[in-house]
Every structure is written in structure tokens, then in C-alpha cells.
Simulated assay, not measured.
Amino acid sequence: MNTLKFQTQINAPKDRVWNALWDPANYREWTRAFSDSSHFDGELKQCKEIDFLDGDNNGMYARVETFKPNEQMAFRHVGEIRAGQRQDPSTEWGNNLESYSLSEVNGRTTLDVSVDAPDEYAAQMNDIFPKAFANLKALAEKH
């Protein structure tokens, strides 16, 4: 298991970055780097469960561990979803943490992301996250 760390600077206040991250339509845009049809289903609130899906309804389900609007969001992954059906808790992805933290100085936001990923997915995540960040920056920085 690897804990991967990513950081980007965005020329926008953190409330705009938060909206770019978690508004459902915006989420679909910035996560295209992972899958052209990435989306989530569920409620982004503390202790709620959420499904992260592609167009074929495959993906992961998670529990919202931390929900502090405009500051921090963290998910504890539970298991996989295949064809819209939740699978038993995963030994590969289960209990992995994915967290997003925002800090702002003079209208510029630093986004720090930490992702626990199985060894065989580390290279893929290291390749995709910078592309996703480019999409996110474009969304958050437009006026």
C-alpha cells in the first residue's frame, strides 16, 4: 500500500475551489482524467456513504469521514461496485483513506490530496492526478 501525496496551487479562493471539486457537474468535469463518465451518487455529508462511478456503474463506495466545507473532505473507501452492485468490503481498496485539504492565502488556494492506493495502482494514480488537477484549475480559475 502506498500513500500518495499531490499538491497544486489554484488562483481562486477556496470556496470556488471547493465548488469546483464537489459540485456534481464540476466533479464530472475535473475527474474526466480518471474516466470520461466519472460521477458520484450520494450525499456529501459527514458519515454518509457515497458511490464513485463510471458510465457503466463500476467504481468504489466510500464513507465520508470528514466534511468541513471549504476546508477538508475525506473518504474512507469500503469496497468496489460492479455493474451498479456493491461488492463485499474490499481487501484491496477497503479502509483506504482519500483526503482533500484546502488552505488559502491572498485569494490563492493550495489543494493537498492524500490517497492510499494499492501498489499496482500507484503509477496510474501518479499519472492521472496531475491531469485531473489541470482540469480542476481550469474550472476554479474561470470567472
Results as ranks from 00 to 15, higher is better:
residue 128 I to F: 11
residue 103 S to W: 05
residue 65 E to Q: 13
residue 107 G to D: 07
residue 9 Q to T: 15
residue 105 V to Q: 06
residue 27 Y to S: 04
residue 105 V to W: 00
residue 42 G to N: 06
residue 117 A to M: 08
residue 78 V to Y: 01
residue 117 A to I: 14
residue 34 F to R: 03
residue 8 T to H: 02
residue 46 Q to Y: 13
residue 41 D to R: 14
residue 60 M to Q: 04
residue 83 A to W: 00
residue 82 R to P: 03
residue 133 F to Y: 10
residue 59 G to H: 02
residue 117 A to R: 04
residue 142 K to P: 04
residue 21 L to C: 09
residue 88 D to V: 15
residue 10 I to G: 00
residue 5 K to Q: 10
residue 58 N to V: 13
residue 57 N to G: 07
residue 117 A to E: 02
residue 49 E to F: 15
residue 61 Y to W: 08
residue 59 G to L: 06
residue 38 S to I: 01
residue 72 Q to V: 11
residue 141 E to G: 10
residue 85 Q to N: 11
residue 81 I to G: 01
residue 105 V to H: 07
residue 7 Q to D: 03
residue 38 S to C: 15
residue 71 E to D: 12
residue 39 H to M: 04
residue 143 H to K: 13
residue 86 R to P: 05
residue 108 R to N: 09
residue 87 Q to C: 14
residue 18 W to V: 01
residue 82 R to L: 15
residue 50 I to N: 03
residue 5 K to L: 12
residue 46 Q to E: 14
residue 15 D to S: 14
residue 68 K to Y: 08
residue 135 N to P: 04
residue 98 E to A: 08
residue 35 S to F: 05
residue 125 M to R: 06
residue 100 Y to M: 06
residue 61 Y to N: 02
residue 48 K to T: 14
residue 112 D to C: 12
residue 55 G to A: 10
residue 70 N to L: 10
residue 107 G to V: 11
residue 1 M to C: 07
residue 46 Q to T: 08
residue 66 T to G: 07
residue 13 P to F: 07
residue 10 I to E: 00
residue 87 Q to A: 13
residue 64 V to F: 09
residue 19 N to L: 11
residue 87 Q to E: 15
residue 99 S to Q: 11
residue 88 D to H: 12
residue 22 W to T: 02
residue 75 F to H: 08
residue 107 G to R: 11
